[in-house]
């Protein structure tokens, strides 16, 4: 069973062809890592999956809903598709607990008590139960990102999208966040798609690695295979540069 299916998907920003004939199928339970140089369309690609970006051609099916059909309800779709952003995007006017509880309360109408219990459980899972009453401005970047992960999990998504979740973090905080992501994505029923530059981490958690360049998917391999010997020159080049650092 597939969770995400791209068929010849095209995306334009004005005249700029940001996504070029994207064909991609992601099965339920898979953990897929998306890598590539900046400007290659990785972020754009995952943002089309929860419709933060529209597509201009082709067919895109997510969780059995056809996103190429303008009638498809984006709000309904997003309840099953969580997203974790590079810059966290925690609600600045709400404390940590409220950040997690708001959507379950007003979108999925979870009873208040159950909602609170779930939020506290999630905070515990990400190791921040003592920060429940803090405002986002009072916690560190790594802590913010862990709250953001808890917030997306509170909607009990079937698919999680991570858009460079550690790129805005201090090196010392990256590991805490990666550990949480690892825990979350290893749940067998969770499907995840991760844009990252953390190669070691990608190697560890991913079943599959997709390499993008100039709006196209250049390579799509099993994780182990990709690191051993990328098929294309472009991927080899990219990998050698990253690893030598």
């Amino acid at each position: 069973m597939s969770m995400v299916e791209f068929h010849d998907v095209q995306k334009y920003y004005g005249k700029f062809h940001a996504l070029h004939d994207i064909n991609l199928k992601i099965d339920k339970g898979e953990t897929v890592v998306l890598i590539g140089p900046s400007g290659s369309g990785k972020s754009t690609l995952i943002r089309t999956i929860n419709r933060l970006e529209s597509i201009q051609g082709g067919k895109l099916i997510v969780n059995n809903q056809d996103l190429s059909n303008p009638k498809t309800d984006s709000n309904r779709l997003r309840q099953d598709v969580g997203m974790v952003f590079q810059h966290f995007n925690l609600y600045k006017n709400k404390n940590v607990l409220e950040n997690i509880m708001l959507a379950p309360r007003i979108v999925s109408h979870l009873p208040e008590e159950e909602n609170k219990k779930q939020a506290l459980d999630l905070l515990k899972m990400v190791g921040l139960e003592d920060k429940a009453q803090n405002m986002p401005a009072q916690i560190s970047g790594g802590q913010k990102q862990r709250v953001a992960i808890a917030r997306s999990l509170a909607m009990r998504p079937k698919l999680l999208l991570f858009d460079e979740p550690t790129s805005a973090l201090d090196p010392e905080m990256i590991d805490d966040v990666l550990q949480v992501i690892k825990k979350v994505t290893s749940a067998s029923e969770m499907t995840s798609l991760i844009v990252t530059h953390e190669m070691g981490f990608a190697k560890e958690v991913a079943n599959r690695v997709i390499f993008m360049d100039e709006g196209q998917i250049v390579e799509d391999d099993e994780s182990a295979l990709f690191y051993k010997k990328p098929q294309t020159m472009r991927a080899q080049q990219f990998l050698s540069k990253i690893i030598s650092h």
């Binding site: 929860n50 933060l52 984006s74 709000n75 598709v81 952003f85």
Partner: peptide, 16 residues
């Protein structure tokens, strides 16, 4: 804009 995207990504409507 991230505040709006953060909210919309959890399934909230524009009005919410």
């Amino acid at each position: 804009n991230g505040q709006m995207e953060g909210a919309r990504s959890t399934g909230m409507t524009y009005q919410q």
